[in-house]
Design a protein around this nucleic acid. Structure first.
Length: 316
DNA sequence: AACTGACTCAACCGCCGGTGA
DNA sequence: GTCACCGGCGGTTGAGTCAGT
């Protein structure tokens, strides 16, 4: 069938989002929650198409997003998962709850792919596998086949993750604080160690978007000056660019959120990006516990609460 | 100091699958 | 059963930034 464009070209604004637009979108989502994106432009008056709104939210405004400074651990995970899953960035991103698929995709395309190609198979694992990812499968597979494939994928991913984490631990043992308290993947990242925004999982964070924060957010943008649009308009960019100073100002579940009482009723409990970890767990520690809990386990049907279940719920 | 090429990443585009009428 | 709508995904682009000359 011929599909009309998601939004007609007239009157639809494109390009970088402005702080004002961000604010409108965030405010709307704070009130109504993400979803029903079709209605967002009309209800908010944003001259954006629904896709653009959704993308802006999921890739940028969504709380709990960590930007830039991929750690070695994250990098290894991405390499392994890419080798196993192929360019299924959304699936890969589900293993890195603080990262967006777009971010991972960009990082892969700009850093990792070249690294693996140019430097030969630097890590040894990616090289051949990455060139022919497992994702190149027939699109039309029956459900049963798909499930078997999924089981295989899970098994392979699991093994690879265990290897990655094991080898990483051998090289650079994780500090206890990193595994237990903060974001395991982020803990030793230069930027993230100082950036509160990366310290908590999205669901646990409790999205603190008060009018005070909004005004501070805008204030921070304004003070950043420079190019209007992408740069200052993007809290994360400011955060990553400045290292840490602005991070606490934009409390997307950051410092303020982590310091906030857990019972803080977050308007973003319906967060679209799943957190595979328990609220007081970091995603990676959840992965680790899942990996190491049953060394010989074929427990792909473990009862509720396992990482696998969560992964099954969200990633596939 | 100016210029140029490489790099980064936010955003767009088109396609696909799920779902409800 | 068919059709249309909507959300999601992966690939791609282009503006902005950075580093080297």
């Amino acid at each position: 069938m011929v599909r009309p464009p998601c939004c007609d070209k007239e009157g639809i604004k494109k390009g970088p989002w402005t702080p004002e637009e961000d604010l409108v979108l965030v405010s709307y989502i704070q009130e109504h929650g993400p979803g029903n994106w079709r209605a967002v432009p009309t209800r908010t008056g944003l001259m954006r198409c629904s896709k653009s709104c959704r993308l802006r939210w999921t890739n940028y405004l969504r709380p709990g997003i960590k930007r830039g400074n991929f750690t070695d651990q994250e990098e290894k995970l991405i390499v392994h998962l890419q080798a196993l899953l192929g360019n299924r960035w959304a699936a890969i991103a589900s293993y890195l709850p603080e990262r967006t698929d777009n971010d991972i995709k960009n990082y892969w395309n700009t850093h990792l792919r070249r690294k693996l190609q140019g430097g030969g198979e630097g890590e040894g694992e990616g090289g051949g596998a990455a060139s022919k990812p497992a994702a190149q499968r027939p699109a039309s597979s029956s459900k049963g086949q798909w499930e078997r494939r999924l089981q295989t994928d899970i098994g392979m991913a699991r093994r690879a993750l265990r290897e990655a984490l094991t080898s990483l631990d051998a090289v650079k043992p994780l500090p206890d604080a990193a595994v237990g308290a903060g974001s395991g993947a982020a803990a030793d990242s230069p930027a993230s160690s100082s950036s509160g925004a990366s310290q908590c999982s999205p669901s646990a964070a409790g999205y603190v978007l008060t009018t005070e924060n909004i005004s501070r957010m805008l204030d921070g943008w304004a003070r950043k000056g420079g190019r209007a649009g992408t740069g200052p308009a993007t809290p994360g960019a400011a955060e990553s660019a400045s290292g840490s100073s602005e991070a606490s100002e934009v409390s997307y579940g950051g410092t303020a959120a982590s310091a906030a009482p857990p019972a803080l009723p977050s308007p973003f409990d319906y967060e679209t990006k799943p957190s595979v970890a328990a609220p007081d767990q970091t995603p990676l520690s959840a992965i680790e516990s899942w990996l190491f809990a049953d060394v010989d386990g074929i427990d792909h049907h473990v009862q509720g609460g396992s990482f696998l279940d969560a992964a099954m719920d969200y990633a596939f």
